[in-house]
């Protein structure tokens, strides 16, 4: 074999290796971008503790409060996260204007502590609840830490979503959940109602489990209304977003996959071109 032939073969080999490594590095780079983008998405929010964060819990409590006012039914949640280290709500959330007040004369009114007031009755009750059952997130239209089943004066009628998670310390994730809907209404309610609404067990164990938990709780008044046990909850008046407030852009995953596809196509075409050049040289 001549020297020029050897050099040509070496050049071909190097060229092929460059193409292969370019494709491999390109795909790895895009996958890293995909993972980083996903992680950044998950890191947003949840300040204030609990499963929903203070802002999420506040929104949920307000919406359940509106439903309670419209339907005269209390709605709540009790979620055993199986996470003893789960942080509690730093400040208990209460509805800004409770729709349901104590109906009976002489009954104990629902305390509405001033914001930031330490050691209020509500705060103490929340601490007691969480101290007794670490990792359990309880709340209702009356606020975080308030179980409507234990407040018969304010809540003669109630519906509570329950979920009992199993946290696998090896997998470091929730691996199973038992869900239920408890009520004292003369009505059959079960997890199948949530499944029929599109909220499945897979959702409650998935990437957006906390959002789906909030959805499961938020859907209760609608399910009750659809069964004819209460009127529908009225729509909120249209409120324009403040300046600069806009919908978040779609996730990057689609663009990363498009990038991976593009790199593979380009790599395949370059491979073919190199193969064609080589075969022409050898002919």
């Amino acid at each position: 074999m001549s020297g020029s032939g050897k050099r040509g073969k070496t050049a071909d080999t190097v060229g092929r290796q460059i193409v292969i490594w370019s494709i491999v590095l390109g795909v790895i780079g895009l996958i890293v971008v995909l993972v980083v983008a996903d992680n950044n998405d998950d890191e947003v929010g949840f300040s204030g503790g609990g499963l929903f964060g203070s802002e999420g819990a506040g929104r949920l409590v307000e919406r359940l409060n509106a439903a309670a006012g419209a339907q005269q039914i209390c709605y709540g949640w009790e979620i055993d996260s199986d996470l003893p280290g789960m942080t509690d709500y730093i400040t208990p959330v209460t509805p800004s204007a409770p729709a349901l007040r104590t109906p009976a004369p002489g009954a104990t009114p629902l305390p509405t502590p001033a914001p930031g007031t330490p050691q209020s009755e509500t705060e103490q009750r929340l601490r007691d609840t969480l101290a007794a059952e670490p990792g359990v997130d309880v709340g209702s239209n009356l606020g975080t830490g308030v179980d409507p089943r234990e407040r018969p004066q304010e809540c003669p009628r109630w519906v509570v979503f329950t979920a009992d998670y199993y946290y696998d310390i090896t997998e470091e994730e929730w691996t199973s959940v038992t869900q239920g809907i408890e009520t004292n209404l003369p009505l059959q309610l079960s997890p199948s109602d949530l499944r029929q609404a599109g909220i499945t067990e897979v959702d409650l164990l998935g990437d957006q489990a906390n959002a789906r938990l909030a959805d499961a709780v938020g859907a209760l008044p609608m399910i009750v209304a659809e069964k004819g046990a209460a009127p529908p909850v009225p729509q909120i008046d249209v409120q324009a977003p403040p300046a600069g407030d806009k919908i978040s852009p779609p996730g990057m995953a689609r663009y990363v996959w498009m990038g991976i596809g593009g790199v593979l196509v380009a790599g395949g075409l370059v491979w073919i071109v190199i193969a064609a050049v080589r075969s022409r040289r050898s002919a």
Partner: peptide, 20 residues
């Protein structure tokens, strides 16, 4: 929930322990 200031959502965005 789906947006916010500069398109940054702040409610229910985390995956929780279920996200793996």
């Amino acid at each position: 929930r789906w947006g916010g200031p500069s398109g940054r959502a702040s409610v229910f965005r985390g995956g929780g322990p279920g996200s793996g």
